[in-house]
Design a protein around this nucleic acid. Structure first.
Lengths: 128, 128
DNA sequence: TATAAACCTTGTAGCCACTACAGGGTCAAG
DNA sequence: CTTGACCCTGTAGTGGCTACAAGGTTTATA
């Protein structure tokens, strides 16, 4: 399976796959005689894991640790749990920030009287 | 007022102020005999506007347009309103995404049985 | 007056997670 | 045997800063 096929399989751009290889997140696959990357099922599942974790907003570094942990089957999963919880806390912080932001923007826009720029409440609210 | 004083006044790093100048968002101030930037009240208010808009999540490019519009006092403020609404729509999209994300992470973490990595539900949920 | 500390200057490189080329090589279909 | 769709590497760009390095200026103190 070459990079384009893998890309279609996991719905990821070929450039992104090569990027993951470059930063050491996805192991280098063997090459064909024509120097094409030749991926196996293990690559597919590792890349799927990465993409799923990225979709959930985990950082590359977090994913790196998660993949390492996944290989230590005997260990407790406390570290995995901790990473997930840290990420959840981060998401909650962002949600709170965005919620406050939406309220401010709502009020800003609600004040617009559709007049001239000179009497614009939105610009007024942004000005000092 | 030099760059450090301006930085303290508007609670922004000096590097950021110079960055705004470099990208043409904040006009170049005159210089003192020792080649120090010499800011006036106009700079303070322009930078305050920029920072307030950044805090509300407007992009640099949106702020550039807002500042341009603010100078055309006779024009209708429809364009200002449109930018604010577009940004609000963006914030709402992000809120929806983050809310879905939080739900997924909540459920992921809720499934953790605190056992070994081999039976970790979080890693299972991430795997394909 | 000397000097040290605290500023200022410019330019450049780094952050994150990609994305987009350019300039070449390979491969399958017709 | 040519065409076009892929692949390769390497580099540069994105946004919005942030962090140096290596020098110049100003201010406070000895």
């Amino acid at each position: 399976m070459n990079v384009g096929e893998l890309a279609r399989t996991v719905d990821t751009k070929a450039e992104t796959i090569r990027y993951y290889e470059r930063i050491g997140l996805l192991p280098e696959p063997p090459r064909t005689s024509g120097n094409y990357r030749d991926y196996s099922a293990r690559h597919v599942s590792r890349l799927s894991f990465i993409r799923r974790a990225r979709d959930l907003g985990f950082s590359i570094e977090q994913i790196r640790v998660l993949l390492d942990l996944a290989d230590q089957k005997e260990q407790s999963c406390a570290a995995v749990d901790a990473i997930a919880r840290a990420h959840l806390a981060d998401v909650k912080r962002k949600l709170a920030d965005l919620t406050a932001l939406r309220r401010e923007l709502d009020s800003l826009i609600g004040q617009c009287r559709h007049g001239t720029v000179a009497e614009c409440r939105i610009l007024e609210a942004l000005a000092p």
